[in-house]
Amino acid sequence: MYEPIRTKSVHSTMAGTTSDFPHRSREEELDIQLAGHLAALLAVTDELRALEPSTDLDAAAERLADQVARLREGRVPARTAASGGEPKLAALHRRAHALAGRALVVAASRADTAAAILAAERMDAHAAAQAEPQELTGVG
């Protein structure tokens, strides 16, 4: 029903020579991707810390920074300062929840238990923050 592939892939090396560009393993690619998601989550966490300081967010930021440094072979992640203006807290919590979900998927695919647990905890924390009752204003 299907014909076999008769030609050699253009992506393979020719005559046993190595290519001019470095190749990364799947594990290395997942490390890079996971570090990126966790670094983005750290940036959002730092913004949330600036708007509503809490010990939970402080502890989460330190754990996130530790995981990013571990995945980046000891290189410390860049940290963000408080941004000007007042972004909506709910939007930041939604963004953090989504980033933690992405990190959880990658951590699970590479079997990184520590990062997966941290991402799941952050998802729960941001989901709880979104579910907190909002102050209602009366119609005047």
Rank of each mutant, 00 (worst) to 15 (best):
A50K: 04
S25W: 04
L38A: 02
A50W: 08
A82P: 12
S83A: 15
L57Y: 08
A90M: 05
Q33A: 12
L34Q: 02
G84S: 14
M123D: 02
P53I: 09
D56A: 15
E121H: 07
Q130L: 15
A90P: 01
A114M: 03
A81R: 14
G138E: 15
F21D: 00
A39W: 01
L64G: 08
R49C: 05
A100L: 07
E27S: 13
V10W: 06
A81K: 11
T7E: 14
M1K: 06
S19A: 13
L118A: 12
M123I: 12
A61E: 08
L41H: 02
L136S: 11
H97W: 14
K8A: 13
H23N: 02
A91W: 05
R63T: 13
D56G: 10
R72I: 01
E27G: 06
A100H: 06
E3S: 13
A40C: 01
D56P: 00
V106N: 00
F21L: 09
R75W: 00
E47A: 11
A114K: 11
I117N: 04
T137S: 13
H37Y: 14
A69D: 06
D66G: 03
A65L: 09
L42K: 05
L48A: 06
K88F: 02
A39Q: 14
Q130E: 15
S25C: 05
V68G: 03
L92P: 08
L99A: 09
A98H: 08
R79H: 15
H126P: 01
R70T: 14
G138D: 14
A100T: 11
M123V: 10
